[in-house]
């Protein structure tokens, strides 16, 4: 195969090789990015943000590019929330914001002014475990432990979502309130990847906490 000096641009080639172009651009920098840099100030813009994390008020002056995840991990040093992909693909960074679970890597910290954030450390600590944390220990719902805080935050929020009547993709009848069943839990937990493959045990742990036969 001849190796072209430049990427051949055809519709087919562009579609098939899209990822190459993207990767190459990220390494070399696009003209747009270059122009932006020339105008960039010597210091990145910062903003002040105030929120509650685990019932403690925090006020931070942050580079506006800082994600909620990095604000927690690098600035507040709450490293229980994990960075697995930084792209919203794995769920390891799941935290509970105003009662709803979110991927904290997909959210800029400055978007959370005034919010109430609960991280894994806010659910419980060694010696005083949250029932979900205790159930994960009993059912061995983890192995390497890296996805675990995200799984647990998700699991706590999932049970609240079901209680609040929020349907999922597998809820058969939207006119009935959803119930805690294994298919419901598996569907709702599918944004939290566990590469160690503890899924079967995690679902057992959640069922245990929900106190249902599922």
């Amino acid at each position: 195969m001849a190796i072209p000096e430049e990427f051949p641009i055809s519709r087919r080639g562009l579609l098939a090789g899209g990822a190459v172009s993207v990767a190459a651009v990220s390494a070399a920098g696009s003209p747009d990015a270059r122009a932006a840099v020339e105008k960039a100030p010597s210091r990145p813009p910062t903003a002040r943000v105030a929120f509650h994390v685990n019932n403690t008020a925090h006020e931070l002056e942050l580079d506006t590019r800082t994600t909620l995840l990095d604000a927690l991990r690098e600035h507040l040093r709450l490293t229980g929330t994990k960075k697995g992909c930084d792209h919203g693909q794995c769920g390891a960074c799941t935290v509970i914001v105003d009662g709803r679970r979110i991927n904290s890597c997909l959210s800029l910290a400055v978007m959370h002014d005034g919010d109430k954030i609960t991280t894994i450390e806010g659910l419980g600590l060694p010696g005083n475990l949250h029932p979900m944390q205790q159930a994960f220990v009993e059912h061995d719902g983890y192995q390497c432990g890296y996805c675990t805080p995200g799984q647990i935050c998700s699991a706590v929020a999932v049970l609240e979502e079901i209680k609040a009547g929020i349907p999922s993709h597998v809820t058969a009848d939207l006119s009935d309130p959803p119930s805690v069943t294994r298919p419901e839990l598996r569907e709702r937990m599918s944004g939290n990847i566990c590469r160690c493959g503890a899924y079967s045990n995690i679902v057992d742990a959640i069922v245990d906490v929900a106190g249902v036969k599922a």
Binding site: R73, R77, L78, T79, G80, T81, K82, K83, T119, I120, E121, L123, G124, L125, P126, G127, L129, Q133, Q134, F136, V137, E138, D140, Y142, G145, Y146, T148, P149, I152
Partner: peptide, 21 residues
């Protein structure tokens, strides 16, 4: 036996490499 590192891992207090502030 339950894992002895369970309380650390389930509370996010087991320290991984990048987190060693």
């Amino acid at each position: 036996t339950n894992r002895i590192d369970g309380p650390l891992k389930t509370t996010g207090t087991a320290p991984y490499a990048y987190e060693r502030h």
